[in-house]
Amino acid sequence: MAPDFLLWLERTTGSIALHESLWVYPIVESVHVLTLCLFLGTAVMVDLRLLGVVLRRVPVSEVLTRLRPWMMAGFAVMIVSGGLLFYAIPVRTYLNIFFRIKVALLALTGINAWIFHRSIYLSVAEWDLALVAPRRARAAGAASLFLWAFIVVAGRMIAYNWFDPPEVH
């Protein structure tokens, strides 16, 4: 069963207003998917540059710094809109196995990005112009691509699978 906190959250004015809303909920859903496109579209370009697939003649650091504002803006709005979707339906979302998988994968992408920036990327000056980045940078790019692909699939599955709490039946 869901924690008391979520049972309380579901009864707050904001949560009720969101899940009963006529327009706001579908708009938040749309914003979530659109900003996912902005974030992931740019993140994929960075990952593919690391793998030596696209923009090979552009320095890695330039691809990253030029795309980062778009990536971070998309990410921020995506996280806020995703948070609102959770806030609207907290209990069923918490009980949803795909939501739990998604949260675990999100944590892994965070760790992946953190390791990348704290290790191999520190020496980017040495391989900035390399057509194909060093093995550790390629591994980070590949991990990001695959984790995000599964996050998108898990997110889609949340919307199509209802996990009703027992007392609802």
């Binding site: 969101l18 899940h19 809303s21 579908p26 609802v168």
Partner: peptide
């Protein structure tokens, strides 16, 4: 017994 007036689908 109950009407759940909720997005994305009512129950």
């Amino acid at each position: 017994t109950r009407m759940e007036w909720i997005n994305p689908h009512a129950w």
